[in-house]
Design a protein around this nucleic acid. Structure first.
Lengths: 221, 221
DNA sequence: GTAATGGTTCGGTTAATATCGAACCATGAG
DNA sequence: CTCATGGTTCGATATTAACCGAACCATTAC
């Protein structure tokens, strides 16, 4: 019967407002404790515990015990991708919604799990496609590797992992794809390491310095 | 309160197994009637009606009344994207799930309801738009009818039906539109009648012969 | 050792919703 | 007009699950 993949089961895990708040809080890839998450969601510890157990059981979250704390984080990039796919809906059903300065910064550049999203993320993705650094089937071309090497990113430096090198992730604010995957992560790491940008505390905003933005775009030219 | 975007509301819409079955059935972009969907989901008409109303209200589905039927289809590509994002989970938990040759054939060309889908279907659609055979509002132009006549397809041969002549349908594998509607069906019929391709038994695969594929693409040139 | 804190388990209440039977409305066929 | 069919509306029922209070377990601090 019901042979269909139980995507309903996964959806149900995200369908609760409390769980949703927690997941959104974890969008940036950090690991938070159960009580922190309970506070953010506005529920008691008991309730949060129950929710978190379900999320872990459903392989949406991963948990790591450390001392008497239990740190929760997203199971992987695909969870962030799912949340972004959901945000696409709210972003256009309620168009204006007062775009404050912080909101503006979020649209400009933010972290999505572990890679760059927002205008800058989409720009990165599109430029790489346009310049032929990235092929249609999302593999880095020879020319691409050459340019990646220019910022010190070589295949040898990639961490061993079976996670796909490149992956495209639908951007909720831009409604276009940005670059995810191992390479997406490495590029963001480099942007931060070179101080082209820095993370704003307690937010997902990636703040580029004027100089950093220029260098980044130059590199893509 | 709950200022968070109501991604939970959207997720809840997908969280029900019955609604899920219906959405998956619509993944190929076809438009199905309420009773068809009820049958596929294994529920009664009343229940389906309630579900469908919710999905339309939540802007997940779009409905179009035609005669005494109501055709439901996905509201847009972002819905398909969401469903795909959800499927990543189930496909991930089960091992690699090798993409066999049959899967490759499915992406290349398959039947979608009664018309051509997959790479070849998208190619047909795009070419017809590009060549000006098909206008923006999805009507066949004069030039279009000329070329259709070249393979023996004239307006007179169209079956009497209130079904729209042309319709664009979101392609599951290509994520782009292919040509549906009466004309889409007639073209596929002709492809099969001329033996440019044949249907593989017990599957949705449309297998083009090398010669047939060449002739088909030549016709689109 | 005792106290404090992070986290889980249990039980009972409450709210939401999926479901269907039956009646109802609307369209199309004859 | 009459009948059949697609689809919705209206209860009423039953299942689910979110929630919290209270008790409990585990780890660190003192």
């Amino acid at each position: 019967m019901r042979e269909g993949p139980d995507i309903a089961r996964i959806a149900a895990l995200v369908a609760d407002p409390a769980r949703c708040s927690m997941l959104l809080a974890l969008m940036d890839g950090r690991a938070l404790t159960a009580t922190e998450l309970a506070g953010l969601a506005g529920i008691t510890k008991q309730t949060a515990s129950s929710h978190l157990a379900k999320l872990v059981d459903g392989e949406v979250l991963r948990v790591e015990a450390q001392g008497r704390h239990r740190y929760f984080q997203l199971e992987g990039p695909h969870v962030a991708a799912l949340l972004e796919a959901l945000m696409v809906f709210s972003s256009d059903s309620v168009p204006p919604l007062r775009t404050g300065p912080k909101d503006f910064a979020l649209r400009k550049a933010r972290i999505c799990y572990d890679h760059l999203a927002g205008e800058m993320g989409v720009e990165l993705h599109d430029r790489m496609r346009e310049r032929g650094w990235l092929s249609d089937d999302l593999t880095i071309t020879e020319k691409g590797w050459t340019h990646l090497a220019a910022i010190g990113l070589t295949p040898a430096k990639l961490p061993r992992s079976n996670r796909p090198l490149c992956r495209s992730c639908l951007d909720w604010s831009q409604r276009r794809h940005h670059l995810a995957g191992l390479v997406g992560r490495m590029i963001l790491d480099h942007i931060l390491a070179l101080s082209w940008a820095r993370r704003l505390p307690a937010s997902r905003v990636i703040a580029f310095t004027p100089d950093g933005e220029r260098r980044f775009l130059d590199w893509l030219r």
